[in-house]
Amino acid sequence: MKRKFSKTFVVTKAAIDDLNHVNNVVYLQWCMDIAEQHWEERAVQSVKDEYVWVALNHYISYKAASFEGDELVIETWIVSLEGVKSERKYKIYRPKDNKTIVEAKTEWCLLKSETKRPSRVPKEIQDMF
């Protein structure tokens, strides 16, 4: 269950804080964004209509700073899909020097779109990831 999804991008001025490096909150937003992009790419429309994910918790380990103009790669992959929960991991690194910037994980809960109640992760979703 470790099919990675990744994206390469360049850090913009909007991500920079008063210390002239990427703001810590921005890394969390990037993780949330790539998780959504991964879901959008892999899930068929009928599944996206029937289910939604909500974050239960996040854990982020900041390893190094990144700066405006840095090219970064963000990767995400699913570690587990059990019961109503999923654990997703992330890695953000700078390919220029292969420096890991952030390692993170999020525990997600699957909900039925209509009722907003937790739902066991069906085999159909497990097979997508």
Rank of each mutant, 00 (worst) to 15 (best):
I78K: 03
P118E: 13
K112I: 11
A15L: 08
V44M: 14
V73R: 03
A14Q: 12
Q29G: 10
S86I: 10
D17L: 07
K7Y: 09
V102H: 06
W77R: 15
W77P: 13
I78P: 00
I74L: 12
Y62N: 02
E68G: 05
P95E: 11
V84P: 06
K48N: 05
Y27K: 12
A64W: 01
C31A: 02
V52F: 09
M1S: 12
A55G: 03
K4H: 13
S80F: 03
D97M: 10
A43G: 09
N57Y: 08
S113R: 15
I101S: 02
L110K: 02
D127R: 13
A35K: 15
T106E: 07
M1H: 12
V84Q: 09
P95S: 13
S119H: 10
E103Q: 11
E40Q: 14
T8I: 09
Y62Q: 06
M32T: 12
N98T: 00
R88L: 05
A65Q: 10
N20S: 11
Y62P: 00
I60H: 11
N24G: 04
K7R: 11
I74T: 00
N23E: 03
E71C: 04
I101M: 06
A15T: 00
E36H: 05
G69A: 03
N57A: 11
L110I: 09
I34R: 15
D33V: 00
A15S: 06
K91T: 01
W77T: 14
E82M: 04
Y62T: 00
F5M: 04
E124C: 01
W53Q: 03
W30T: 07
E82I: 01
Y59N: 10
Q37V: 04
E68P: 03
E82P: 02
A55I: 04
S80N: 10
V47S: 08
K89Y: 07
F67W: 05
V25D: 00
K85Y: 13
Y90V: 14
N20C: 11
A43P: 02
K13S: 06
N20M: 08
S61C: 05
V121G: 04
I34D: 11
T106Q: 08
D49S: 15
K4F: 06
E82Q: 08
E75G: 00
E124V: 11
E107Y: 02
L110W: 10
V79I: 08
W30H: 07
Y27C: 11
N98G: 04
K91I: 04
D18Q: 07
A14D: 12
A104G: 05
K105F: 12
Y93L: 10
Q45A: 07
K123E: 15
S61M: 03
I125V: 15
T12L: 03
N98S: 10
K123A: 15
V79R: 14
D18T: 05
M1C: 09
F67Y: 13
A15D: 12
K96W: 01
S6K: 04
T8C: 03
I16G: 02
V73I: 15
Q37W: 14
F9V: 15
A35L: 14
V102R: 06
S80I: 08
A104I: 02
S6V: 12
D18S: 11
